[in-house]
Design a protein around this nucleic acid. Structure first.
Lengths: 191, 191
DNA sequence: TATATACTTGAGCGACCGCTCAAGAAAGAC
DNA sequence: GTCTTTCTTGAGCGGTCGCTCAAGTATATA
């Protein structure tokens, strides 16, 4: 006696929620917003996701996972050094994205003062991302593309910081983000 | 027939409100929070400031104005180049500050998607700050401390972006912000 | 001291918040 | 068709939001 199946595509809903949260932030997104955009009544929403925070967590997870995957794919295609040099430009040109700035950073900045679990989760993902960058710098160093007297972890820390600044700057209309991206890439060439 | 004077120091209240907003953000700060921290009942609060947003605006104004003043003072004391090299370290070492990250950037990031007036105000102040940086770079260039083949405006844009990234990174426990600050200062030396 | 003028107080407004749950609708098993 | 199970629906809960306002209180003038 199997009953009816849900009418929605859960994965697609998470992706849409991610875009809304990404753009509007945690406090800036109400359940009304989600219900309207996801076309879910409150009952279905809570049956599917449990709570607003739980959905935000899923959205963050998805965001981080896709970010890592995209970077790895880029490195596979271009090699570590070129990937690191290309990433700044790619990240501000992503035309389909709901925002230029990083969702992990926005989440962390918004919720850290509250010691919210989601801030901790975002921070963890930023650490993962930093580790990815460090990996690529290390590979580039082993390939001889970067001088041996550099610490890959330190390069990664600086690089991630630059990327966060770039992506925040890219939201501003009075800033030419492409110049910044080009300068970041140029810095890598000088290593 | 002059009546009683207010019991509070308006300027001090604005400074305290700035610290609360800076740490907790716009949505993250409720009137209850403000009433408790400023020791004002709702009636006095609204008599003094008109609205939460109005107080936030005053706090932003104060924040921006003090930021510019601090930078100018630093430049007067150390000269333009040294000021630019020192600022990154100072900004993450400010021990009395309620947060490492920039209140203008946090405000902009939180409210831009809503097209909130406060986001526009914050963006304007960031532009002013960028102009300050450009001024210092130009002065350093005229003094011969920086090669003549650099555009001060472009340097300022990159510098501000780096500073935003640094200050956001400085909130994280898994990041050594001093390393980043030192690297940013080192970049300036290579110009 | 009497009066006019402000400041202080706090109950409480309407709106919205995240969320619950009982009732109705749909679909596979028999 | 009938039954069972799940999904869908939407009214509405308790709570908090930003904010108002009338009553009470303190102070400088006259």
């Amino acid at each position: 006696m199997m009953p009816r199946r849900p009418e929605y595509d859960r994965d697609a809903l998470i992706a849409r929620a991610r875009d809304i949260f990404w753009r509007q932030g945690w406090a800036g997104t109400s359940l009304k917003d989600l219900e309207r955009e996801l076309k879910l009544k409150p009952g279905s929403f809570y049956a599917a996701f449990g709570s607003k925070d739980a959905l935000y967590g899923l959205a963050l997870e998805r965001y981080a996972q896709e970010g890592v995957a995209r970077l790895r794919a880029l490195a596979d295609r271009l090699g570590p050094l070129e990937a690191l040099k290309t990433q700044p430009r790619l990240v501000i040109e992503a035309s389909g994205a709901p925002a230029k700035s990083c969702m992990l950073a926005k989440t962390y900045a918004e919720l850290q003062a509250k010691d919210h679990d989601l801030a901790e989760q975002a921070g963890g993902h930023m650490a993962e991302m930093k580790a990815c960058f460090a990996d690529l710098f290390r590979q580039a160093q082993e390939a001889g593309d970067i001088g041996p007297d550099h610490d890959p972890n330190r390069l990664a820390t600086r690089y991630q910081s630059d990327l966060l600044g770039l992506r925040l700057s890219a939201e501003r209309s009075d800033v030419d983000a492409h110049e910044i991206a080009a300068d970041i890439a140029a810095d890598i060439d000088r290593l």
